[in-house]
Amino acid sequence: MAMTAEQKGKHSGTSGERAVRYAAPALEKGLDILEALSASAGGYTLNELAQALGRNVNEIFRMVVTLQRRGYIQADQNDRYTLTLTMFQLANRQQPVKTLVGSALPLLQELSERARQSCHLAIYQGGRVVIIAQVDSPERWSFGLKVGVVMGLTDTSSGHVLLAYQDEVERTRMLSSHIRVEGEQTMDPGQLFTLLKEVRRNGYSCMPSIQIQGVTNIAFPVRGLGGRVVAAINVPHIARIDGMPRPDIVQITDILADICGRLSSRIGYDASLAEDSTPA
């Protein structure tokens, strides 16, 4: 079927020209605001936000008010804006994430009971690591991360697991999209790739927390269809010094391997059909 003159005109420009022609400045301002707030754990005042975006307050005021009214951002008593969990909730309405969380929660509860530690389930999303499920330790004290919290991709054990088992193309894409979170340590690329090789060799990551003294993070991969690593389960291990018998790191490693293997099977991974898909 022949194209009309109007259709020919629409297809004749370069991709850059079409991008300008179909630009939505208001939408872009709104997305800039959300992205800026997502990268700041402490949030911004209106003036600070305008400065971070390189705009003046009048340019973003109406957009900020609209985002607040729709529940995407919130302001505290000091008029400092932060993201709400609305975007996280929208993302979790996707069936794959709902299925993963639904399958994982009973096993996370079992892991917590057996290890006597808190644990959480993390995925890669938008250049960072996001906590999508968490279970507290059954002990009278616990250390855990809130659901919806974002963590660094390059300086956490969960991030290392999620990066280590990707092929070179996917790993490059993830790193090129990487957005640093507040407090994330700068990781030398050579050091990072050495760590990722160690994770692949051992089958998991075990490292002292870079953020919290006294915590040892133990993270294992969760595999889906075709053996692809889709998530990581992490136990932020806190050692007791009062002599009470509790599973040690070696024992927790065995428990985690069991839990992650069972969760992988629940979401479609067939170990008997899988070949060694570990990237070089």
Rank of each mutant, 00 (worst) to 15 (best):
L192R: 11
L192W: 04
F193G: 00
F193D: 15
F193H: 13
T194A: 15
T194R: 15
T194N: 09
T194P: 00
L195F: 02
L195T: 12
L195I: 03
L195M: 13
L195K: 12
L195E: 15
L196C: 03
L196K: 03
L196M: 09
L196G: 10
L196A: 04
L196R: 06
K197R: 15
E198Q: 14
V199K: 03
V199E: 01
V199P: 05
V199A: 04
V199F: 04
V199S: 06
V199C: 02
V199L: 04
V199H: 02
R200T: 02
R200S: 03
R200H: 00
R200L: 05
R201C: 03
R201F: 09
R201W: 09
R201P: 01
R201N: 14
R201E: 14
R201Y: 12
R201I: 00
N202D: 15
N202Y: 00
N202Q: 15
N202M: 12
N202S: 14
N202T: 13
G203H: 08
G203F: 03
G203S: 07
G203N: 09
Y204N: 05
Y204L: 14
Y204I: 01
S205E: 11
S205G: 02
M207C: 03
M207Q: 14
M207P: 00
P208M: 08
P208A: 08
P208H: 04
P208Q: 11
P208E: 12
S209P: 00
S209W: 08
S209K: 07
I210R: 15
I210C: 04
I210L: 15
I210S: 13
I212F: 11
I212E: 15
I212H: 12
Q213H: 11
Q213I: 03
Q213G: 10
Q213A: 15
Q213V: 09
G214T: 06
G214I: 05
G214S: 07
V215I: 15
V215H: 05
V215K: 09
T216C: 05
T216M: 13
T216S: 12
T216G: 01
N217A: 14
N217Y: 00
N217V: 08
N217L: 13
N217F: 00
I218E: 06
I218H: 01
A219R: 05
A219Q: 03
A219W: 04
A219P: 09
A219M: 05
A219H: 08
F220S: 08
F220C: 00
F220H: 14
F220Q: 02
F220D: 03
F220G: 06
F220R: 02
P221S: 11
P221N: 05
P221M: 10
P221G: 11
P221I: 10
V222S: 05
V222G: 05
V222L: 11
V222R: 07
R223A: 06
R223Q: 14
R223E: 09
G224F: 00
G224Q: 09
G224C: 10
G224L: 10
G224P: 01
L225P: 00
L225D: 13
G226Q: 04
G226W: 10
G226T: 12
G226M: 06
G226K: 07
G226H: 11
G226V: 10
G227R: 12
G227M: 10
G227I: 12
R228F: 12
R228D: 04
R228G: 02
R228E: 13
V229P: 09
V229L: 03
V229F: 05
V229Y: 04
V230E: 07
V230Y: 03
V230S: 01
A231W: 02
A231G: 06
A231Q: 11
A231S: 12
A231C: 08
A231E: 05
